[in-house]
Amino acid sequence: MNPFDYHRAEDAAGAAALVADNPAAAFLAGGTNLVDRMKLGVTAPDTLVDITHLPMDEVEELPEGGLRIGANVRNSEAAAHPLVRTRYPVLSQALLSGASGQLRNAATTGGNLLQRTRCVYFQDLSTPCNKREPGSGCSALEGYQRYHAVFGASPDCVATHPSDMAVALAALDAQAVVQDAAAERRIPVSRLHRLPGEAPERDTVLAHGDLITAVELPAMPMAARARYRKIRDRASFAFALVSAAAAMELAEDGTVADARIALGGVAHKPWRARLAEEALIGAAATGHDFAAAAEAELAEARPLPGNTFKLPLVRAAITTTLGEVADGVRGRGAGPDQGEGER
């Protein structure tokens, strides 16, 4: 790790300016991914601006029934917050399925969004990686692909975004509140992260120095019955192979009036499954319809030789999560998939 200067930021705009002015500066929040990358040599800032003492650590109600979660709210606090649990349990579930208790106590809302891929080649300086070193090549294209993308990848990068939280936020139409040196703006979480295209070194649409100060969740009644399902190899403390966040609202005739589906572990960004959502609207909300919705989304899938198994997993993630949501919406309580401790 290279030496660096350490500053404690006094205010958000000042922090943004400090980083914006120095291409080699970085914000430090919980540090659970940044310090990890610095040890690996993947990231080598010469200045760290510690934002954890900025007053961005509250969960507040918004006027129309939404919630604002400060960027410094720790993942564990967000997951345990009574308003998050009751209004957006899918967000609590997603947060709690990520990392470990210790990491969730340090990791922040903003930092979780901006964590970087865990692609083994990205993290290994001895191998080529376009994201780490543009133009060097993508080692994963013909390498180890278990955790890699099946949607929206490019010949330059097949990495996935590792966050669980961001998947739930994408489904919930959340917006990131972004501060730069001059002003504040809002970006939908589903459009915050990019697809790799020809510039995989850029994870998000943010400019250097942009600081996420909060995440805002709009009021969404169907979110109270939304659910998150994470499929992984280890029973806990493992990144998703595939995950799904889903919300659904049924009309009086039992057909689907509205739906939100986002997938994790499948793309360079939390993957909003809009084709599946469209296919669901007006459908009868049966297992058959859920499978058809999954197929609609899978039409866009382009698996790699080493992760073709993710296609049936996507299908399973969508159908089981929608099934669970439908059971809840219809008042049947927990679906068959709710064995204790088996998530």
Binding site: R118, V120, Y121, T127, G143, D233, R234, A238
Partner: peptide
């Protein structure tokens, strides 16, 4: 990874050992 010759999943995040759960 045969192209490089080394173990590429060389950490506890990728080389899973059984966790408590």
């Amino acid at each position: 990874d045969g192209r490089f010759g080394h173990v590429v999943n060389a950490d506890f995040a990728e080389y899973h050992i059984a966790a408590n759960a």
